[in-house]
């Protein structure tokens, strides 16, 4: 379980994938490099204050033999523990050209409110 950390950039490891977390004005953004993964094989799940990213990458070659294997394959997974001020209902994700982007909007802080005087 990774606690969400600003600017954190994990290099890909033998059975992992590269991710990057940053904080913008009103959201956190988690990006994950998942080249060669079909969109249908990516699952993003929110559970209480946890975010799970799960993906499956098939073998590169369905036939023939492999001469060199450097890309991660099979089950790929990463879990994050989220800060309290995330609006869980408003989390969105998109996948484009091998990059998964998950946006985690922050809860709107209620501004000062004038209290009417009876």
């Amino acid at each position: 379980m990774t606690l969400i950390t600003l600017g954190r950039c994990c290099p890909p490891d033998i059975q992992g994938f590269e991710t990057h977390v940053r904080r913008d004005a009103d959201d956190f953004v988690i990006q994950a490099a998942l080249p060669g993964v079909e969109k249908e094989k990516i699952q993003v799940t929110m559970e209480e204050r946890r975010l799970h990213i799960k993906a499956f990458r098939d073998d590169s070659f369905s036939r023939g033999r492999s001469l060199r294997s450097e890309l991660p394959r099979g089950e790929l997974e990463k879990n994050y523990s989220l800060p309290e001020n995330i609006d869980a209902e408003a989390v969105t994700s998109s996948y484009d050209n091998g990059i998964l982007t998950v946006r985690l909007p922050l809860k709107q802080q209620p501004g000062p409110r004038a209290v009417p005087i009876d």
Binding site: A33, L34, P35, G36, S60, F61, R63, G64, R65, S66, L67, R68, S69, E70, L71, N97, G98, I99
Partner: peptide, 16 residues
């Protein structure tokens, strides 16, 4: 990843 079959060599390069 690099592979081959009888007809060709195949390269799949990660460029997300």
């Amino acid at each position: 990843d690099v592979g081959e079959d009888d007809e060709k060599y195949m390269i799949k390069a990660a460029l997300p």
